[in-house]
Design a protein around this nucleic acid. Structure first.
Lengths: 211, 211
DNA sequence: CGCTAATTTGACCTGGATCAACTACGGTGG
DNA sequence: CCACCGTAGTTGATCCAGGTCAAATTAGCG
């Protein structure tokens, strides 16, 4: 883990801008948020279930996922987080984390003190509303994942997830022309879809065959 | 569907009180919320995916669930809602619903205009914070369901869900001494756990056998 | 070029689905 | 009071999507 002072929070502006309009003052306040930047290797833990973080982290570059592990190493991934996301925003309101976060790729994160975020949202209710809407959008994605986990076939589920990620990346300008780089292991994809890595592999081949 | 003027929102006080403290003024403001009460039969739709509701509904009595249906009648239930819950609170911030709600039992609902709720939360930021925390708690439950859908065995999943419902009912005083009435069909339980009604039946027998 | 992690392939197995019958039970109407 | 019905709950037989295990083949990468 290394620390650097050179960073830019514009990717957050882009994300919030895709949810609703921001005034110039609001943009400025966001850009001036104090942050500590850290660069992490792939597969490193960021915060663990049970901790009480004092900062939220913003993904500047790379991919992160949230997950939980139960007995016998069974793991369920709940979400993939891409640049612009604030994966543990909820720690502002629920002090102890009920799940963990780790990196999937080389990743750059900006850690912002809870206190600064609280000031920001108190001063700009509109930003608070955008954060709130962002979590409601995430809840909608959760529901879609549940539908896939419970009631879709393996290939439907995978196809749906790939499309969803395309849309998510497109919103922050990281995907165009129906293409994007997908730096996730088939094992991880399995942990997200509730499938085994072997079956993920076979279903992906099947989807490729069908276009 | 019948309409009556005789109702009490105290069950909401109880629910919010189990999340955080409420001042006397706040309690009063909640009790004075204008509401239209309706009594519904079991298995009736309340609001459907795609609608733009102008009211939120509060469960006063009975059980409600949120769900989505995909091709070939496959249905996934996302949550069970019991008295004190405001299942579609999110419609305050995301105008069009992405899933549906229906009753499971004879149910009494109070419909509260969005406008009144917006006034309430604007006037009492503490109430807004409690609502916000309530949705974060729900998100935590969503994650637990995903874990069950994706990575737990059928019996683990069922057992977990039954325990969770016990705790939820206990919070509003509807369960004591490790007992509660569970008015849900095995078919519905299957749609919540991603299992078939037949397998739910067998797993319940198995759990009963083991205590 | 060698090492490690990821993907792919094949053989075989199993948890849970499906289908179909049968039972229990609370109405409801005669 | 009983015959009839519709809705859940049970049970049994059979099937298959997806899991498990293990080995083989790439893909990176220092």
């Amino acid at each position: 883990m290394s620390v650097t002072a050179d960073y830019s929070l514009t990717v957050l502006l882009r994300k919030l801008g895709s949810i609703g309009p921001l005034s110039p003052e609001e943009r400025q306040a966001i850009e001036r948020l104090p942050a500590t930047v850290r660069v992490l290797e792939p597969r490193q833990e960021i915060v663990r279930e049970g901790e009480r973080p004092s900062h939220c982290f913003l993904v500047l570059d790379g991919w992160v996922c949230s997950y939980k592990i139960i007995s016998q190493g069974r793991r369920q991934i709940f979400a993939f987080h891409v640049p612009g996301d604030l994966p543990d925003l909820q720690s502002l309101h629920v002090p102890v984390l009920d799940h963990s976060f780790c990196t999937l790729t080389h990743t750059t994160l900006a850690f912002v003190p809870h206190e600064s975020l609280r000031e920001l949202t108190a001063r700009f209710p509109n930003i608070a509303a955008l954060f709130w809407r962002a979590t409601l959008i995430d809840a909608g994605i959760f529901r879609e994942w549940m539908l896939g986990l419970g009631r879709r076939t393996a290939s439907e589920h995978l196809a749906h997830m790939l499309c969803e990620l395309y849309l998510k990346l497109q919103a922050v300008g990281l995907a165009q022309e129906h293409r994007y780089t997908f730096p996730v292991t088939q094992q991880d994809l399995g942990d997200a879809t509730g499938l085994s890595n072997v079956h993920v592999n076979r279903m992906l081949q099947d989807l490729r065959r069908r276009g």
